[in-house]
Amino acid sequence: MSTSKDWAGDAKNASTTGEFVRDTRYIDDRILASVEKPEQQEDGRTFWPVVPGKYRLMAARACPWAHRSIITRRLKGLEDVISLGLAGPTHDKRSWVFDLDPGEVDPVLGIHRLQEAYFERFPDYPRGITVPAIVDIESKSVVTNDFPSLVPDLNDQWSEYEREGAPDLYPESLREEIDELTSYIFKEVNNGVYRCGFASTQDAYDQAYERLWDALDYLEERLSTRRYLVGEHITLADIYLYPTLVRFDAVYHGHFKCNRNKISEMPALWGYLRDLFQTPGFGDTTDFKEIKEHYYIVHTDVNPTQVVPQGPDLSGLVSEHGREQLGGSPFAPGATAPGPVPEGERVRNMLPEQQAFFEG
């Protein structure tokens, strides 16, 4: 088996059949409210304490896996508790780079590449330097990049410090259904677009294409009678699906050959996407310029010219969606939408219509 790495966090193995296989081995430490100091576990993991101001969430607006952590942090109102470092959209094989900041170094950690935080803890770290990652600010070393647990932990473990009115995005009564659906979405949609884009044989691509569209057709049907994926309000299930849907027409349709049709041509999914996009925390954390630059410039095996397309027209994302007629509401009674985006965290490259909607 030959192995290659896409250091955007899309570590992949090219199997003998040409199928894309994601490397899902991560630093699976966790930050828990139940511990007072770092505790080494028998399985080698470390559990870290919840301490405001101790950690920095390292992310990139281009990355769908990081995007879900940015959305969750914003909805929970943890901006003053866990700071946010943002890498630029393009990089080489060594790792994400903080080239959007003055001097091309992260202003808190003082590092140029995210790789430095990984090597600070694991000098011979052998796998992809991925976002999202949480870094201990004092030691400048990575704590975890295990995005499957990182995002639910932002909902569960930091509740003492979340904003007043923060929604519960992972209700106990819905967890079994959320877990089942998000597992399906990860395999068939979040990862499904990559199986299409990085397939290296026709058969592998054809199979990936069929699986992806079977899943999208299922979600189209599911969302034709309900406003959100699980229950009556936004949950982690919606946060996990959104980053793939919002990137679909701009990137995956053409770049990854997921081109049966666009999301804007699927009535239920298109209305659902517009509904989420217009909710604070979603559209106001989405940077299409950085998203397109990342995929079209970094993936030289897919796009060797590195030409970034100007289209498509995405202004329709702020048009009326009419999803209110299905019932439900973005947040449960007693919960509220987050306030304005903090000054230093505003999306740099908002579309004119996007800016008018959120800041006008």
Rank of each mutant, 00 (worst) to 15 (best):
residue 272 Y to S: 09
residue 176 E to V: 14
residue 186 F to P: 00
residue 209 Y to Q: 08
residue 226 R to M: 00
residue 233 H to S: 11
residue 277 F to Y: 15
residue 218 Y to V: 03
residue 223 L to M: 02
residue 277 F to D: 08
residue 263 I to D: 00
residue 220 E to A: 04
residue 304 P to C: 14
residue 234 I to Y: 13
residue 207 Q to L: 08
residue 207 Q to W: 00
residue 237 A to E: 08
residue 230 V to C: 05
residue 205 Y to A: 05
residue 288 F to K: 02
residue 225 T to H: 14
residue 260 R to A: 07
residue 304 P to T: 12
residue 195 R to S: 10
residue 213 W to T: 01
residue 261 N to C: 10
residue 224 S to C: 09
residue 287 D to L: 12
residue 283 G to K: 04
residue 215 A to R: 09
residue 289 K to Y: 12
residue 270 W to Y: 10
residue 264 S to R: 02
residue 287 D to F: 10
residue 238 D to P: 02
residue 245 L to D: 03
residue 299 H to G: 06
residue 305 T to E: 15
residue 307 V to H: 13
residue 211 R to D: 15
residue 208 A to G: 08
residue 268 A to D: 01
residue 249 D to L: 00
residue 189 V to G: 08
residue 309 P to Q: 11
residue 283 G to N: 08
residue 210 E to T: 14
residue 184 Y to T: 09
residue 293 E to G: 05
residue 268 A to S: 11
residue 272 Y to G: 05
residue 192 G to A: 09
residue 286 T to P: 10
residue 226 R to C: 01
residue 177 E to L: 03
residue 269 L to K: 00
residue 247 R to N: 09
residue 190 N to F: 04
residue 178 I to L: 08
residue 280 P to N: 11
residue 274 R to G: 00
residue 206 D to N: 14
residue 206 D to L: 12
residue 222 R to S: 12
residue 194 Y to H: 13
residue 235 T to E: 09
residue 215 A to N: 06
residue 252 Y to C: 04
residue 244 T to Q: 07
residue 241 L to N: 05
residue 220 E to R: 04
residue 239 I to N: 06
residue 256 F to G: 06
residue 300 T to V: 14
residue 262 K to N: 03
residue 214 D to I: 08
residue 193 V to W: 03
residue 306 Q to V: 06
residue 183 S to N: 14
residue 264 S to T: 01
residue 272 Y to W: 12
residue 269 L to W: 01
residue 177 E to G: 02
residue 309 P to C: 10
residue 234 I to F: 13
residue 188 E to G: 04
residue 178 I to S: 04
residue 221 E to F: 03
residue 305 T to N: 14
residue 189 V to D: 07
residue 288 F to G: 04
residue 300 T to R: 15
residue 207 Q to N: 07
residue 232 E to R: 10
residue 196 C to N: 15
residue 185 I to T: 09
residue 199 A to P: 10
residue 182 T to G: 07
residue 250 A to Y: 03
residue 233 H to Y: 12
residue 174 L to P: 05
residue 179 D to S: 14
residue 215 A to F: 06
residue 257 K to Y: 08
residue 251 V to A: 03
residue 214 D to L: 13
residue 304 P to H: 13
residue 193 V to I: 12
residue 196 C to M: 08
residue 233 H to N: 15
residue 292 K to F: 03
residue 273 L to V: 07
residue 244 T to P: 02
residue 174 L to Q: 15
residue 200 S to H: 11
residue 183 S to E: 15
residue 189 V to S: 07
residue 206 D to I: 04
residue 265 E to N: 01
residue 289 K to R: 12
residue 297 I to Q: 15
residue 247 R to L: 08
residue 187 K to Y: 09
residue 252 Y to E: 04
residue 226 R to L: 00
residue 223 L to T: 03
residue 301 D to G: 13
residue 252 Y to W: 06
residue 212 L to S: 06
residue 219 L to P: 05
